[in-house]
Amino acid sequence: MNIKQQFKEGLITNNPVLVQLLGMCATMAITTSLFNGIGMGFSVLIILTCCNVVISLIRKIIPNDIRLAIFVLVIAGFVTIVDLVLQAFIPALSESLGVFIPLIVVNCIIIGRAEAFCQKNPVGASFFDGIFQGLGYTCVLICMCVIREFLGKGSFGSGIFNTTNGIGTGSGIHIFPSEYGALVLTLPIGGFITLGCLIALMQYVLKKNEKKKEAKEKEGANV
């Protein structure tokens, strides 16, 4: 498998959230501001890459019966490291993500990739798989944040732009006054509906692509 193909798979055709439907809880819960989205996305990216590398390094010595327990332990170790680092250096992020940082342990993306990819592939491929799957996850988070923030509060990039009191505060760039926004999108309901619509859009696009490919193949066969 080459890197280009892995890149395309992670971001589009095998996107962890939109196509594999993994790790939905955090995706819906924390995408209320761009700051949270980027922070969470990169935390998962780093943990996923590290876990992929370690698991693929030890894949030959893990007994098959207890592999899940070992995966969970490796993941829990890295999650603890990231949790402590965030608490020490970016306390604002750690506070606003709250319980969802330790919950990365049970994020199905990481166990899913360990089970489906790292067990069978060498270190290099697993490393790139971690990076691209993590990037795919981050992109979805950023999309959700931007949509929910813009339609819900009429702002862009809260916590990152126009900060008042260090990073993580402030309400971002105001595009239209927040009282015209659909407040419902910033509440839990908005998370469910936005993600539902994004997945539907993805299914629509993938199906259309497939049809195009089929039509092309048919044309080729006719010629």
């Binding site: 439907l21 839990p188 309901i189 908005g190 998370g191 469910f192 509906i193 993600l195 539902g196 619509c197 997945i199 539907a200 859009l201 299914q203 629509y204 199906k207």
Partner: peptide, 14 residues
């Protein structure tokens, strides 16, 4: 295109 998970998510939202 809403087949499967998306419609379930929208239902859950409601």
């Amino acid at each position: 295109s809403f087949n499967g998970f998306p419609i379930a998510l929208v239902t859950a939202g409601l």
